[in-house]
Structures are given as C-alpha cells and as structure tokens.
Nucleic acid binder design. Structure first.
Lengths: 131, 131
DNA sequence: CCTAAATAGTACTAAATAAGTACAGTATTA
DNA sequence: TAATACTGTACTTATTTAGTACTATTTAGG
C-alpha cells in the first residue's frame, strides 16, 4: 500500500491539537487529548522540534506550541519532519538512498517529475485545513 | 521515508520496456532488458495482468504486451496494480484498513483531501512520459 | 537551593511489511 | 507431443516501522 507512516498520521493529529493551545502544552496533555500513547507523542515531538515545526519550553509549565501559524505549516512539512525528505523512489534527486540500477535504467530521472507533482500537492494542504 | 515500493518502481521500468515491444515479450526477455531478476519480473507481471494493464499470451512465442497505449496508462494505475488502492492513511475512504481512533479523531476525514490531491498528481504522469 | 515537572537523547525490542525464492501446474504453438 | 512460457501458491528472509524503556538535562517556584 502506498501510504504515509502511522507516525506521520499521528503527527498531523498532534499539530491540529496544538492549534488550540494558547500556552505551551505538555506531551502528557497532548496524549490525553488525542488518544495517542504518551511515549509515542514524546518521540514525535522530538522530530517535530528538530524540523522547527514546534517550539519547546522545559521545566514546570513547559510543553510545546506551534512554531508558526497553522495556515503556514503544510502536510509536506510534517511528512518531511517525521519521515525525512520526500523521495518516492531512490532515484529521485533528494533521496537519501542510491539506486543500484542507476546507470542503465530506462526510467532514469523520470520519477523526479512525479515526485515534484506529489510534493506540490502536499504543499497545498495546511494544518489549518485539517482542523 | 515516504515512498513507493521497490516493486512499483520496477513495475514502471517493466511497463516502459514493454512500450518498445511489437509482439508479446516473455518475462525472461524483460528481465534481461531491465536487469530486474526474472522471478521478480514474474511476480510483477501477475499483478499487472490482474489489474488489466498488460495482456498475456501463453505458449511458445508467448509473453506480455501493454493492454493500452502508453499515454493512457498512468503512474496511479501502476501503483494501484502493485500496491492496491491508494490510501495515504487508514482513515481515507477507499482504504482497506480501519482506523481505530476513527470515532474521536480530530482530523477525521481530512486526509481525503490530501489523498485526492496526490492521486490527481499521479494520474497526470503516464508511461509515455516516463520513456 | 532543592524539588517536581517536563523536555532531550539514546538504545533496544517486537511486530509488521516487503522482497525475493521456489516449485508445481496449465495453456499454446510449432 | 515436446518445448516454451504463463499461472498460482507458499515460504523464507530481510528490512522497516512501531512501540518501549531509561537516563540526563532544564526550568520554575517555594
């Protein structure tokens, strides 16, 4: 099946939850709100933080909040934060893998086009659209 | 990583190879042309056949050929043939899975929009575009 | 300054999926 | 009727994903 990771799915749910947060919201509360297990939320937040999609505050009254307005964060951003660069196949330019057939492959470079089209589609939908 | 199966990637290579086939082309020859292992080609062809993307002829001088003109077969068709219905998450309408959070999920149904956008993008690129 | 709350980072285990292989069966044509 | 090539099923192995656990670090407030 062609699909995003479960974690990516969770991540969108988390992001949507954070839209309604005025103050920093701790992982534990996010877990309660969304039904996603606490340890999993924790793991997710690290990825989202590293990608700069959320801000964190440590200590008492700490937690997470969105780093930008909901309508500026796209599904493409979330997928990239959780799963790394979007590369439908290993022969796409920004892929982390290397294709072993690369040198004599009949579709060399053609997937780039498909990839771009998909990324474009994913950039059109924002967190605000998901709420 | 957000990507298609390796088999789907192979499948496009196979389809592109078949574009140049006047007669039916046996799996073995497809394997030679593309560098994809013969047993894997065999497996692929079954999926492509079932999906109606290729035609088969048994016996001597048998093999496979495209069931429609290359410009009418899309990447979406190939993905669906190999991986089943395109459903980015399990809460998308045509998904085979069921989402266990479905009833209280904050993003209920919102992924449909994303899914449609992606499918649309995938339908715009054809086998002819990949050659 | 000390304690409790909460994030940050790393490493590990288990489950699910994908990839590859093997083999026996069936149809077709020369 | 023999050789060729598709058809179908089952199995094994490798890879990826998901989930868990634990320790360290930071911060606010009494």
């Amino acid at each position: 099946m062609f699909k995003v990771n479960k974690l990516t799915d969770y991540a969108t749910v988390v992001m949507v939850d954070l839209v309604s947060a005025d103050l920093a919201r701790p992982s534990q509360k996010i877990a309660n709100n969304t039904g996603i297990p606490y340890p999993t939320v924790n793991k997710l937040m690290k990825d989202l933080l590293q990608a700069g999609l959320v801000r964190s505050h440590r200590g008492i009254n700490g937690g997470y909040s969105l780093a930008s307005p909901a309508h500026k964060i796209t599904i493409a951003d979330i997928i990239q934060a959780v799963e790394g660069p979007i590369a439908l196949t290993s022969c796409v330019n920004n892929s982390l893998d290397k294709c072993s057939y690369e040198n004599f492959c009949a579709v060399q470079g053609r997937w780039n086009r498909v990839n771009k089209a998909v990324v474009k589609a994913l950039k059109k939908v924002t967190v605000a659209d998901m709420t």
